[in-house]
Every structure is written in structure tokens, then in C-alpha cells.
């Protein structure tokens, strides 16, 4: 068996979710190859080659692959697919965009968002916002899979010494073009890989009040997240959203402030190791998943928490 992983990277940096995907691949077993596509593939390939467990890195250096356009990258992967038993990508917005296109071109059914590897053909994945877990088997000649990064440890970023080989594809399909990005910049840790996350909901009342949460987050070295209601209301940008249709996080500590605990929100955080809820409504469903619940007005509790953290 051999496995090809679509590497995710940005501005010459390898995305951490790739490391978790390598671990999922090593649980499947077999040779692990990484594909680095883009116009900065050289520097990313050098980092990819040192990941423990990776035996080969393929680079496809072409501006057409730089922005993750599925119409361009899917045919590249399809062109390489014949030698592989499994094609994997992290279940990020990029992996979710590209891999189903690959699967359909290969006429195979994709398995989305796996959280466990049972054997080379059988995987577990959440359905119904994580209210049920399905064990799914595939007899497809090549398995196309996206991997939920929080369900797998990160592989060691160093220790490997894979060979780097150049490859190529058909380049620009001429169907779509990248215009620009509006990326939120933050000095704080990235939401999906942070060990502590402090999230705010509609109870925060407005965006300016998120400054209170940011102060707590900075004392804890935490990332800041939000519920859909807080994002919809414009308190914070869309990439803060935690949940079924936002980001899935599983930090050591998740602090939910002014969040009621709708199933769609729980889907994104209920695998956190320790959950704290601060809510003034003692009946709020968030308390059902919280290890430590504090029934309080957040406008008192959050400043007090910041002070208590010293």
C-alpha cells in the first residue's frame, strides 16, 4: 500500500494539519508520500521531507497550484493517483474543496472527516453533527479521504529524510482564478491547534466586548473562538466560528462564555479535554457538557477571571 497526502501550506509554511494527517496515514500503513503543489513548493518540500514517517515528497511547482483552486489541483492528484491505495488531505476548507473533485474524477466515493482508522478499508466518521459515529468500509480501488486533524496526534516534524522529486500536471484549467484573500491576522495561536481556546457567543453583546476575552486569552496563551451567533452578528470574523459548519477544536481547555450550547456548536468543541462554561442561565445546555460551570454574568466573571489569572 502507498498513501499520497495533499500537503497544506501557506506562504511557504507547512500547515500543522498536515502532520495530523501523516499520523492517520501511518495508522493505515504503507509508504507515505506528500504532494506539495504551489509556487513556493521548494521551501515547503524541504520542511515536508523532514516529517517523521514520510518516504517521498513530490513537488509540483506551478503558479496555477498556488491558491488551492480545485479545478487545477484535482487533475494533478488524479494524474498521480494510479500508484496509490489511499489519497488523503486534512479536512480543512482547502481539503474539503479539492478532494471530492478528485473522488468524482476517479469515480470513487469519498470518506469525509475521519476520526479513527480501524483498518486500511474501514474508518470512523461523525455524522449528524457528531451525535452519531458511523463505521464505514470502502471497497473502492483507491480510497479518497479527508482527515479531522483534532482526532489524530501530530507526527514529529523532524527526524525524517524523504527524497524530493519534481512532478507536474496540466496546470491552469482555465475555469477559475484567484483574486485576493482577506485573512484575519492574529498574534494568538491558531484556533484548531491551540491548547486553550476562549470562545464568546451572543451573550458578548458586541464586538468591542471581545477585548475582555482577548485579555483572558493572552494571559493563558489561548486562541479566541466564537459561536455562529457571534459571527453572524458581526462581533468577530467568520474564521472564529467553532461548530458543525465552522472549525472543530479539541484543546486541553475550552472556555465558553455567553454561549448557550446548541448541538451545532457542541459538534465543534465537545471533544475538548476540559470544558468551562460561563453563562448567566443555569439551564443553558452548555452546562451539560461542561466539567466546570459558573452561573454568572459574564460582564462580572470575565474581568474577575482575568484578574485572578494574575
Amino acid at each position: 500500500m502507498s498513501i499520497l497526502i495533499l500537503t497544506e501550506h501557506d506562504k511557504g509554511q507547512l500547515n500543522a494539519a498536515t502532520l495530523n494527517t501523516v499520523t492517520a496515514a501511518s495508522q493505515i500503513g504503507g509508504d507515505i508520500h506528500l504532494l506539495v503543489a504551489g509556487d513556493t513548493s521548494g521551501s515547503v518540500a524541504a520542511a515536508a521531507a523532514t516529517i517523521a514517517g514520510v518516504s517521498k515528497v513530490l513537488t509540483a511547482d506551478d503558479a496555477a497550484y498556488a491558491h488551492g483552486l480545485a479545478e487545477n489541483i484535482a487533475p494533478l492528484i488524479v494524474g498521480l493517483a494510479s500508484g496509490y491505495s489511499h489519497l488523503l488531505a486534512p479536512a480543512t476548507t482547502s481539503g474539503k474543496n479539492i478532494m471530492p473533485r478528485v473522488a468524482a474524477l476517479l469515480d470513487v466515493m469519498q470518506i469525509s472527516d475521519i476520526i479513527a482508522v480501524i483498518d486500511a478499508d474501514t474508518f470512523k466518521r461523525p455524522i449528524y453533527a457528531g451525535n452519531a459515529l458511523a463505521t464505514v468500509s470502502s471497497a473502492e480501488p483507491v480510497k479518497v479521504i479527508t482527515v479531522r486533524s483534532t482526532a489524530f496526534e501530530a507526527a514529529a516534524a523532524t527526524g525524517g529524510s524523504a527524497a524530493i522529486e519534481a512532478t507536474g500536471g496540466t496546470g491552469d484549467a482555465g475555469l477559475s482564478s484567484y483574486v485576493k484573500s482577506e485573512l484575519s491576522s492574529s498574534e494568538r495561536p491558531e484556533l484548531t491547534s491551540a491548547s486553550i481556546v476562549v470562545s464568546g457567543g451572543r451573550g458578548m453583546q458586541d464586538g468591542a466586548n471581545f477585548a475582555m476575552l482577548e485579555k483572558v486569552a493572552d494571559k493563558l496563551g489561548a486562541a479566541v473562538g466564537a459561536s455562529r451567533a457571534a459571527v453572524d452578528a458581526g462581533f468577530v470574523p467568520n474564521d472564529y466560528q467553532v461548530g458543525q459548519t465552522g472549525k472543530v477544536v479539541a484543546p486541553e481547555l475550552y472556555i465558553a462564555v455567553g454561549i448557550s450550547g446548541a448541538i451545532q456548536h457542541l459538534a465543534g468543541m465537545k471533544d475538548s479535554k476540559v470544558i468551562v462554561a460561563i453563562n448567566k442561565d443555569e439551564e443553558a445546555p452548555i452546562f451539560q457538557v461542561a466539567d466546570y460551570g459558573l452561573v454568572a454574568d459574564l460582564f462580572d466573571a470575565v474581568p474577575a477571571l482575568e484578574k485572578e489569572l494574575g
Binding site: V108, M109, I111, T122, P126, I127, G130, N131, A132, L133, A134, T135, V136, S137, S138, A139, E140, K270, I275, V276, E282, F287, V289, A290, D291, Y292, G293, L294, V295, A296, A301, A304, L305, E308, L309
Partner: peptide, 26 residues
């Protein structure tokens, strides 16, 4: 193309506690 071998309930979280104030929480 896929077979669903089984569908199960996710493991439930152990029941938590309520704390009285921020000092106890920390």
C-alpha cells in the same frame, strides 16, 4: 460504494460540577 458497518452513540462526557465563583474555578 461504501458499507456502513455500524452507527453508534459517541461516548458521553462525565458529569461536571458547578463552581461558586471565579476563584474556585481558577
Amino acid at each position: 460504494r461504501l458499507t456502513i458497518a455500524k452507527v453508534e452513540e459517541p461516548a458521553a462526557r462525565a458529569a461536571g460540577i458547578k463552581v461558586a465563583d471565579v476563584a474556585e474555578l481558577v
